[in-house]
Amino acid sequence: MKKKEVTVKVTDVGMRFNLSQEKVDNLKEYIIKRITNQLRFNEFWALRDINFEIHKGERLGVLGLNGSGKSTLLKIVSGVLKPTNGTVMTKGKVAPLLELGAGFTPEYTGRENIYLYGAMLGYPKELLDERFDEIVDFSELGEFIDVPIKNYSSGMKARLGFSVATIVEPDILILDEVLSVGDKKFKRKSERKVMNMFDKGVTVLFVSHSLEQVMRICDKAIILDGGHIVAKGNVEKVAKIYRNMTE
């Protein structure tokens, strides 16, 4: 059997947080504690020894209970968070569909935000010029596109965020239960768009604690528990373990 190209490779990743009892964020406290040697941190490993790879076109689901390190893993793969040790290799364009519209500027209009947010995602100007109408159409914002974002409802913001983020066909798609955006109609539309990407062979990293969603979307899965991978493999096999774990 010929192995496909590896598009995401996570090697020995660990993430340590310093949970200080009280957060020291002012100079006076820091100096006093430094001098009196009270600067103690509770080391906490949110992730430890994480190893996995995703081949091109595979869809990996990450299962786990709250606080098991799922979100941390996602942030590391999307590049927002740098792991304490280990490396993450990704090949191709990564599109994290996480907390859509987080990069919006409230005083800016929808139109201006399309360019600013697009730029944050690393898109060139020409692409945004070219696809501008398409973004507006898909978001169904119509004339609201020239209204400052601060007057938008959260559904409108999410719709615009989704429309901008999915304008390019990514190689790797990172999803955080994002398939539920906006009202029912838009939800169906956005789901269709994501499914379309699946058909085109995008690599997916999907995080959820909902087993049904993972089984519907993914072909492989891992389970995180306390920052460790406790199971990995085909989604049916892993689902069985997860069911035993949670019940």
Partner: peptide
């Protein structure tokens, strides 16, 4: 180079919002 356009957009934002 990849984020050149972002720099331009951020500069524009700062100036625009200052006097909006």
């Amino acid at each position: 180079k990849k984020y050149r356009f972002l720099l331009y957009e951020l500069v524009k934002k700062n100036i625009k919002l200052k006097y909006r």
